[in-house]
Design a protein around this nucleic acid. Structure first.
Lengths: 103, 103
DNA sequence: TTATGTCTTGTCATAAAGTGTCAAAAATAG
DNA sequence: CTATTTTTGACACTTTATGACAAGACATAA
């Protein structure tokens, strides 16, 4: 399960839209949208933007969930036991550096 | 730049080892070790373990840096502006759930 | 200067991971 | 039951990551 997915499903139900309709709006397949909602696939940044437009919701809100899911994915697939401590390290870094260097 | 890389370089210098010797010890190429230290390449989990053994240092310490670098990489390559807020979301999740579901 | 040893960088082929689409199964409704 | 919607699995394709090699850069010594 996946936070962005849950939110997308919620938004879709609030909008009374079918998967098929959402899929059409963001120019993709029904199956893919279903997988987004279940967290089986992660949408691209562009898809998230389109979804925000479709649902008339804050892009940043969805984008934050999208990013958070990405981070969670990395943590869970690599030493989940150390996740907490790794997160602490990252946060400590961000406090020190004003701007993270771009790669 | 990269925290694990810095630490690896530090450990190597403390051990008075050449890149070539480290490379041999973890059964890889000199160039690769150089890139690890510079953050141009990320070592595999197995390589990190071997390095910990070689330097006789705590595996978890290196593993945490390794994980933290992975997370940092994801954040920097996807909406770095939202990094802080995404991190907060992830941390909030971890407090609620005892155990993150494995993928 | 050249010679030597160390470290760094670029490129390549391969491997791994991620992506979109289709078809069919499963679920839901009428 | 049928009709519609959703979910799942598989596939080919693309993108990204990886290890190895070779050459370049750097420093030191003679």
């Amino acid at each position: 399960m996946n936070y962005l997915g849950q939110r997308l499903k919620q938004l879709r139900e609030e909008s009374n839209l079918l998967l098929r309709q959402v899929a059409a709006a963001i120019d993709t397949d029904t199956a893919l949208v279903s997988k987004f909602e279940h967290g089986d696939r992660k949408p691209s940044k562009e898809q998230v933007q389109k979804l925000a437009v479709l649902f008339q919701t804050d892009q940043e809100e969805l984008m934050k969930l999208w990013l958070a899911d990405k981070v969670t994915y990395v943590l869970n697939n690599n030493e989940p036991n150390l996740a907490k401590q790794a997160l602490d390290i990252v946060q400590k870094r961000m406090k020190d550096e004003k701007f993270p260097e771009t790669d």
